[in-house]
Every structure is written in C-alpha cells, then in structure tokens.
C-alpha cells in the first residue's frame, strides 16, 4: 500500500511514517519543514520519500502535487497531521487571526483532499484521516478560533465521507486530547500560562503517547477499519467524561 502523510514538523507525522514503513507500506512524507529529524536520516528506506513545500499557501498545492505524484501513481490514503494552534481572548480574536487558523487547519486540508481524492490519484477503498481535537466539541476560554477550525474540519469530513462512499473511500478524523508531541509546541506554553494545567489534569488516563495516536491512524488507514467512515474518533484519555 502507498500512503501520503502531510505534516508540519510535528512528531505525530514522523511517528506515523515510521509505523507505516515498519508495516511494509510505501510512504510519501510532505512536510512544511525541510529538515528531517535525525532518526529519519538513518532511515534510508526505498519505500520512503520526502518532499517539502509551504502548503499553507494553498495555491501551491495543485502544482506541487503534480511533481510529487507522477501520472499513473495512485495512493491508498493520506493523513493530514499538519495545522496550527493558538490562544487569544475574543477581544484579540481578529479576523486575520481567525483566517490564519482556518487556513492551516481547514483550507489546506480541503485542498489536499480535493486533489488527492480524484479517481486518478486515490484507489477505490482508500482512506483519508485528519487529526482533529477535543476542542471541536469542548469549549475553552480563548480557544475560539482553534475550536472553530477543528469543528469545521470534523464537519467537512462528514460531507466528504457521504460523497466519496460510492468509491468505497472512507474519511475520518481523530479528536485527540493532550498528546506528548504537542507538549513541545509553543502554543501549549501559552496555554499553561492560561492555567490549562487544570485542563490537562482532566485527562484521566494522562498524556497520550505519540505512538498511540499513530497506531490509531494506521488502523484507520488499514482495511481493518473498512466500515468506519464519516466519524470523529475520540482519543482523549477520558477527557470528555471528566
């Protein structure tokens, strides 16, 4: 099987690539960062290829994909694990801020989905997975734009799943809680300043391992999950019940 992973320098994306390669799949990594982590430089697998461009400039996606996926090459699925975070109270939630968030978390994903779901590019029975967040269903102060973008992503998936079902293509998102990989990012530091540590404590099972998230992604890509489509799978360490 051949899969495409779209990543913005996040450990989650790298972890998914590693697991897929271990499962003997062919993987194309498209990353916004042009430097791979050290562990990847050692991984000289002929089943792994790497491309980098700034896909948050959505108008570039169409032409770049033409270079990455040559005619006749079809993939079995793709994962969107890129996107940005950010916290701001309403008074500072300017239109520009909202647009940046929507651009990275929704528009870029939809543009990849539009282009990669074409009959010439995505096999029948393929699978599309996007990384969403529990913020989509749980409100937090100052996360207006982020929550809106993730809820939009989750709803977009349902529309796409209904449309692509006739080609047996499945579309799902994962509503993740706090994941190890995220805790590195700056926006979490902002969050901690806003006493999000209390929020973190609500995740009864503790921080989710990056590998655990990657495993769920691999399951949703695989044929094992062939009857799961149009869903927003919760992986939240029991956050939403607490």
């Amino acid at each position: 099987m051949m899969y495409c992973i779209i990543n913005d320098g996040g450990d989650t994306g790298y972890c998914i690539v590693e697991q897929l390669v271990q499962l003997n799949h062919e993987v194309i990594l498209i990353d916004r960062k042009d430097q791979l982590p050290d562990s990847f430089i050692k991984m000289k697998s002929n089943r792994f290829s790497f491309y980098s461009f700034d896909f948050y400039q959505t108008h570039l996606i169409e032409s770049e994909l033409k270079n990455i996926l040559l005619p006749g090459k079809k993939i079995n699925g793709f994962v969107y694990s890129a996107g940005i975070g950010g916290v701001r109270p309403l008074a500072l939630t300017s239109t520009t801020f909202v647009s940046e968030m929507m651009n990275a978390n929704l528009y870029a994903f939809l543009e990849f989905a539009r282009l990669l779901s074409k009959k010439t590019r995505l096999e029948i029975g393929g699978s599309i997975v996007a990384i969403s967040s529990v913020s989509s269903i749980k409100g937090l102060k100052s996360k207006i734009a982020y929550s809106a973008s993730k809820a939009a992503l989750d709803a977009a998936i349902r529309g796409m799943a209904a449309e692509l079902a006739e080609r047996k293509i499945r579309v799902n998102s994962i509503r993740k809680g706090w994941v190890e990989a995220d805790l590195k990012h700056d926006f979490i530091q902002d969050n901690i300043a806003l006493s999000a540590q209390d929020d973190h404590a609500r995740q009864l099972l503790g921080t989710i391992g990056t590998a655990d998230l990657a495993k769920l992604v691999c399951f949703l890509l695989s044929d094992e999950s062939r009857f799961i489509s149009g869903t927003n799978v919760l992986l939240d360490g029991a956050y939403t019940i607490s």
Binding site: M102, L110, S135, G139, I144, S147, A151, A152, D154
Partner: peptide
Amino acid sequence: AASKAATEAAVRC
C-alpha cells in the same frame, strides 16, 4: 457544514 460547525464551536468558547 464546516462553517456551521465552526460557528457552534466558537459559541462554546
């Protein structure tokens, strides 16, 4: 659908 779901999430925040 995406736009309406986004609005509802923003409302919760």
